[in-house]
Simulated assay, not measured.
Amino acid sequence: MPSPAMPASPQSAAPANAAASAARLPKHEPLAFQTRNGMVESVHYGSLVATAPGGRTLLSAGEPRAPFYPRSSLKPLQSVAMVRAGLDLPADLLALTAASHSGAARHLDGASRILELHGLTPAALENSTDLPYGVREREEWLRGGGRPTQLAQNCSGKHAAMAATCVINGWPVQGYLDPSHPLQQLVAETVTELTGEEPAGISTDGCGTPLFALTLAGMARAFGRLASADLPDGMFDGGAAAAESPEAAVAHSMRRHPEMVAGEGRDVTELMRLLPGALAKDGFEGIQLVGLPDGRAVAVKISDGGDRARMPVTVRALEALDVDTSALAGIATGAVLGGGRPVGLLQAADFPFLSPTDDVL
């Protein structure tokens, strides 16, 4: 019997593998750095883009055209699709459908309310199980003897809404995460419409939801559309049906209830509280989206997938757009401690922005 073929040695395989890897790697740029006693200790690379209404590029760094997975920053777009399909919830619960919540009592109770309003129980949820995402919420949950559940997982508001949307439309609840399910087909169409681009690939998010590879430019366009969607004065009575558009209903609910979109102590909640009219959503792997009421938007991707550089870079980009970010000082940098006292700073780099006047991504 012949011997099995031996793998190539690392030395002989390295050049080909390195070339193949280099061809796939986005051309990220240094966007943030951390110092300790005046010395640069860490550097975070990434890409970003800021767009005007219609898609014109206002600012960019790195490679904003490179496809990436937006992860949970897709949730507001998924919520728009559900409102288009007839989902009509009070504003706090609609905000929860777009949330990566911390797992506080208000979040778990809200997800349960969405289910109950549509004759469902947590057994209808098809997301993965987890402990609450927030540190304090997780510790409290564990002290009470809690275990990983689908309701505690940070996407349970979205999943409760997906199951509810199926009930509203007479679609099968079981299997609502299948890409061929009518709900997911509608989500895919809505994402394509709002971003203005076809997905470069499809995968599965951590919670089990279909996930689309898009560009930072496309996601910025979508958030600009949501944040600038008009809601006529006096027409919002707490339900999506009164809104002028599903985009306006989702954006209004998130801005009105930022505590439902993330949670206490979370920077996304703080940004929406401190910057009136801003629409913000983060995502795993270093992603941040912010839409402004005038239709401009910022999209950030930190290449190492870490969380700490995401908000300082976002605040720096907003500042470059001449947005008054003075109220955001508390989330624009991070203290570096030595022996319990500040000895350095995590901050956005003074990265070189490209400022084209007529580039449409």
Rank of each mutant, 00 (worst) to 15 (best):
V315M: 08
V49M: 00
V49H: 00
A16W: 15
F68M: 12
P67F: 08
A85H: 00
A242D: 04
G239M: 02
S156A: 06
M219L: 13
A105L: 13
A14E: 07
A13K: 13
N169V: 10
E285I: 13
A309D: 02
G175W: 15
D294S: 08
A66L: 15
S12F: 07
D88Y: 04
G201N: 12
E41C: 12
M272K: 00
V43G: 09
L216I: 11
L74K: 03
R65G: 15
V336Y: 12
P4C: 15
A241D: 04
S102H: 12
M260T: 01
A5R: 09
A18K: 12
E63T: 14
G157F: 07
Y133L: 15
G224P: 00
A123K: 11
Y45S: 00
R36A: 10
R266I: 06
L211D: 02
A280S: 10
A317Q: 01
N17H: 04
G110S: 09
D294P: 04
P179K: 12
G263V: 10
A329P: 09
H28M: 03
D324K: 05
L89S: 03
A262G: 09
N154A: 04
P2R: 09
R221C: 00
L279E: 01
T204W: 14
F353R: 11
S9T: 15
A13Q: 13
P70Y: 07
S355M: 05
T129K: 13
G86S: 12
Q150H: 14
L279C: 03
G339I: 12
I331W: 03
F33E: 07
L59H: 01
G201F: 15
R84D: 08
M162I: 08
D230V: 15
Q184R: 11
S245M: 07
L337T: 14
V187A: 05
G54D: 00
P26H: 14
G283D: 02
F284Q: 02
P172V: 06
F353N: 05
A18H: 08
L318Q: 05
G38N: 07
V261F: 02
A251M: 02
Y176V: 03
L151E: 05
A124R: 02
Q78P: 06
A213C: 11
M219C: 12
A309C: 12
C166I: 07
G119A: 11
R36C: 09
G134S: 09
R256V: 00
E139R: 15
N169S: 09
R138W: 11
P148H: 13
D205S: 08
V336N: 07
S100M: 07
R36K: 13
T129H: 12
P210A: 01
S47D: 15
A309W: 03
I114V: 14
N169E: 10
Q174D: 14
L142E: 11
V49W: 00
E29R: 04
